[in-house]
């Protein structure tokens, strides 16, 4: 699976080391390599968030931790998103009452030459229509087509 991800990450590497200072006091940078996504968290003073708590959220589950871990003494942490989960990966870094949340857009390079910034994870629509409602709508639409066809066919006769 990871081999599938390499070309995608390879493209991202061209824009690696994008700074993303998130808040007063804490700055989080990320860098996408051919192997993974690397995070580095520091205070404004330059001091690393050593052993900071790190929580990773996948694009399709923004309230459930996909991975938890601890940064190293330099405030660094890395993770490898699966190739089939494109979108905004969100990284929360915390230490001693300070913290920040970082968005890491990971996108497919299918037809486009450049990096695609991932869009919203689609909470609005994916949770907007339940299966029963979807079935009723389908029934209404298909039924309309069928009845319209019946009407026209009966007029031709």
């Amino acid at each position: 699976m990871f081999k599938q991800l390499v070309p995608i990450l390879g493209l991202l590497t061209s824009v690696a080391a994008m700074p993303a200072a998130l808040a007063h006091g804490v700055a989080v940078d990320y860098r996408v390599t051919s192997a993974n996504v690397e995070i580095e968290a520091t205070y404004d003073s330059g001091k690393p968030l050593a052993n900071a708590q790190v929580v990773i959220y996948a694009p399709d589950a923004p309230t459930q931790a996909w991975l938890t871990g601890t940064a190293d003494a330099e405030g660094r942490f890395s993770f490898t998103p699966p190739a089939n989960q494109m979108g905004n990966w969100q990284v929360k870094v915390r230490q001693a009452g300070h913290g920040a949340v970082l968005n890491v857009p990971v996108a497919s390079n299918s037809q486009d030459a450049g990096l695609q910034v991932a869009q919203d994870s689609g909470l609005h629509e994916s949770h907007a229509v339940n299966p029963v409602q979807r079935g009723l709508m389908s029934f209404a639409v298909i039924g309309g087509f069928v009845l319209t066809a019946v009407i026209f066919s009966s007029k031709k006769r």
């Binding site: 808040a23 959220y57 309230t63 915390r94 909470l123």
Partner: peptide, 11 residues
């Protein structure tokens, strides 16, 4: 930024 994720409103 805290123990839990806040602000994610589901339908």
């Amino acid at each position: 930024v805290g123990d839990e994720r806040k602000g994610v409103v589901l339908a």
